[in-house]
Design a protein around this nucleic acid. Structure first.
Lengths: 293, 293
DNA sequence: AGTCATTCGTGCATTATTGCACGGGTATTT
DNA sequence: AAATACCCGTGCAATAATGCACGAATGACT
């Protein structure tokens, strides 16, 4: 009888292109992967991978079964969620994926009450910037800043996210000189707020991380567009918002989970708690607590 | 990481209603099944079966995941077929499901040439009367007497099956007496040929097996409707067909396999061989070689 | 040319899984 | 009431799978 678990190994190798990297994803030793693929090929009399110096490359036969393997994987993910959803206990683990800043400034300071209240639930905060795969149960709850939540996920929009243009008190805008701006690395063409308010500018710094951007503003490099909650919550005396009329972004703060887990006790409890603590910070996130220049 | 193979065990228990019977289906020891189910329940924090005296009974949670488990199973069967289809070697095994009589009288006497020609292919004849599941690869090729082949299966109709009414030479139809008939056990109401030709009859014997029916005719119990190829191929001097005008049945002799295996070398070769030896017996199966009374 | 980082396979020790054999329970049969 | 035929769980030994450590091969980089 064919071991259905074989296809998990097959997919990992097919996706990662090498036995070694597949093994780290699977959390096993590379020799295990190597041997299981070899056994699989022998059992079915089909060569699935070409052994190249650079790694394993799918053969035509492997290409033929790849899509079906993906189907099987997605069904297994669905099964995992369904099983997890049946677990009615208020114990076990919950994985929460959340952006770094939100975790630090809006959630962690107020979250302890939840872990105190539920000693048998262990929370994992996954602050990786990449959106985790809630289908594959890499995360159970996602706290996200996004315009629209992805389909398959259900949740509540808790606040409209507001941005402001901030600068440090030290920074002086000089007359008849272009203003210094800090932009995202990927903003190769000037975004709308730059065109509207600062047509005459120079880009003094490019960053790809919010913390760096914030630090740059604080150090007086120039002006930058930052979510209001970040400087406002820190009660930073040194940084002020500019009183500009900005087009409000359509982004919002969402607490999301997979639809399958909607009724799961511990997920419900955790989402409800997150709703509560984030709703108390609505004004902050919507930029109503800013100190202006 | 969840072991995808768990669901194979889950399904076997869910279907068979006990750990022990599931274990025989899976071909492992019952304690293995028992322990794997227990581990699964522990891992997911869900009780899947109620332990009753009579065996294991699905809980509500298990009912919830049952359909999805079936989906996963069917995908895995598809995968098995796809993998098997990739095997281009003329070696390995082929499972052929075939009715008992056809195997004995029409195939086995002429099949040896194939095994001689392909020493690396091992053939399993599965003469079980039940139609094997070609989706699950319980069998690769089915030789079947049927009006229409099931969907998903592809194949060729090699001959129209003809039946005749047979009796032994010893049996004497007595004037003004009802004729003695041998019928199937399930024929509670008289079939068409009885109404048409023998309205005045008595059922002397009921059988549920073709060999028994044949033996009964041979022993002179009375008349019976039998596929012509059976008495005709045996060159039985003692049994004769009655010269009756029968409505020809729409059944045919089919050699079938799953569409996925259409291009598989060893299946192609085997089907072609079966076509050949069965086509040579067309006249026999279509009842053109009968000796009449 | 030599160093380093990657890739992979393989022998051997460790660990995990499985099979076996037993015992205990309940229902059915004799 | 005893015998039989099922269920199932569990300790222990056999077996299978895995991890570890090593060596070899290749390509990139110094």
């Amino acid at each position: 009888m064919t071991d259905w678990d074989d296809f998990r190994y097959f997919l990992a190798v097919a996706r990662n292109g090498s036995v070694t990297s597949a093994s780290t994803v699977l959390g096993v030793n590379h020799s295990t992967v190597s041997r299981r693929i070899a056994a699989m090929e022998k059992k079915h009399g089909v060569r699935l991978f070409e052994r190249l110096i650079s790694g394993y490359e799918m053969t035509a036969a492997a290409e033929n079964i790849y899509q079906l393997a993906l189907d099987i994987e997605s069904k297994n993910h669905e099964m995992q969620r369904l099983l997890f959803a049946q677990d009615s206990r208020l114990q076990g683990s919950i994985n929460i994926t959340i952006p770094h800043d939100l975790a630090n400034y809006c959630v962690l300071p107020y979250f302890k009450a939840f872990t105190d209240q539920h000693p048998d639930i262990s929370i994992n905060f996954i602050v990786s910037p990449s959106l985790k795969d809630l289908n594959a149960r890499e995360a159970d709850i996602a706290v996200r800043l996004t315009p629209e939540p992805p389909e398959n996920l259900v949740g509540k929009k808790l606040a409209k996210l507001r941005h402001g243009i901030y600068q440090s008190k030290q920074y002086q805008v000089k007359e008849n000189k272009p203003v210094d701006l800090i932009l995202w690395k990927h903003e190769t063409t000037p975004p709308k707020w730059v065109k509207d308010h600062f047509p005459d500018h120079r880009v003094v710094l490019r960053v790809d991380d919010m913390a760096s951007k914030y630090a740059a503003v604080k150090a007086g490099y120039g002006l930058a567009r930052i979510p209001c909650y970040l400087p406002d919550t820190l009660n930073e005396q040194n940084i002020r918002r500019l009183p500009l009329d900005m087009v409000p972004s359509d982004w919002g703060l969402w607490v999301l989970s997979h639809a399958d887990l909607r009724q799961t006790a511990r997920i419900k409890a955790c989402k409800a708690f997150l709703h509560q603590i984030l709703q108390e910070q609505t004004d902050l996130i919507e930029g109503k607590l800013s100190s202006y220049l």
